[in-house]
């Protein structure tokens, strides 16, 4: 009996050793790619259906809060109308200046649209997902460091690893996801936005002199290769730091629920 068990242990050890060898030298790559090609459409359908169902359920569950939400939205809308008028005037002025300077019209991004097929990492433990897996990879021109946007052009994260036909994206709340950022309308203040404990984002080293307040929009600064300038990352929720501190810390909240994403776009340079 003991011998029989020992034999089985050796079988396990041999299988494990062989697997590590096969993975290490990428011998399984063709089989890996074919399997993913077979499973990706199933994953896409399952993921999209489950996410839609969950969103519908959450929508029903949150109907009680609707009255207060409507009130807040009306208030926000009034503020936005005023802001829109100001921006329109600036846009017109900008258009005239661009024409005079002979600049090209608004830059068009090249991007790869992909489906989210799964979320969460091997070792994820937070309430909110910190990473997603998309069904496009290195064969579609995706490589590490490219920015990923969700609906309405809001940055949701960065590509961190790729395989032939899948890629892993760290979401903005992930502490390993760092984005070069600036405050919208204030070109002088730039910093790095990074995830904090998988819950929120923070922008450190904001100078005391910087004109920053809750509600300000944080956008990409364009200082990072592969991520263009002006993409919205989130909104400042809170400013931390005493008046005698050299730097302040801005807590940034995302404008999109990463758990609701089913389709995303990877921006190509």
């Amino acid at each position: 009996m003991i011998n029989k068990n020992k034999n089985y242990i050796w079988v396990y050890v041999a299988v494990a050793g062989l697997l590590i060898f096969l993975f290490l030298f990428k011998i399984l790559s063709p089989f890996e790619k074919a399997t993913r090609q077979l499973i990706n459409p199933v994953l896409k359908t399952f993921y999209s259906a489950t996410t839609k169902l969950r969103m519908k359920y959450e929508e029903r569950a949150s109907k009680e809060d609707l009255a207060s939400q409507i009130e807040n939205l009306i208030e926000e809308r009034n503020g936005l109308i005023e802001e829109k008028a100001r921006w329109q005037a600036l846009e017109e002025e900008n258009g005239v200046l661009r024409e005079q300077l002979g600049f090209l019209t608004k830059k068009k991004y090249h991007y790869v649209v992909s489906n989210v097929v799964s979320r969460g990492d091997l070792t994820d433990s937070n309430r909110i997902s910190e990473s997603i897996i998309i069904d496009k990879g290195s064969h579609d021109g995706i490589y590490n460091g490219l920015g990923v946007i969700g609906g309405n052009g809001i940055v949701i994260g960065k590509v961190v690893e790729t395989k032939d036909n899948i890629a892993k994206v760290y979401l903005t709340n992930n502490s390993h996801c760092k984005l070069a950022a600036t405050i919208l309308g204030d070109n002088k203040t730039s910093g790095v936005v990074e995830g904090e404990l998988g819950l929120t984002m923070k922008m450190g080293f904001v100078p005391q002199t910087a004109d920053i307040k809750a509600g300000d929009l944080i956008v990409t600064s364009g200082l990072e290769e592969g991520i263009p300038r002006g993409l919205v990352i989130g909104k400042v929720a809170e400013i931390k730091g005493e008046s005698n501190d050299p730097w302040r810390l801005a807590i940034v909240e995302t404008l999109i629920d990463p758990d609701d994403l089913t389709i995303v776009s990877v921006i190509l340079p």
């Binding site: 396990y12 494990a16 590590i20």
Partner: peptide
């Protein structure tokens, strides 16, 4: 194997962990 195809890094971490887990639980069961 299929889990390892979808997770990073591809070093067989899932497969080896599952095999180890199975070895331990089978030992307990017997």
């Amino acid at each position: 194997l299929i889990l390892d195809f979808y997770y990073f890094p591809s070093l067989g971490i899932n497969t080896v962990s599952l095999l180890l887990t199975l070895l331990l639980t089978n030992f307990l069961l017997v």
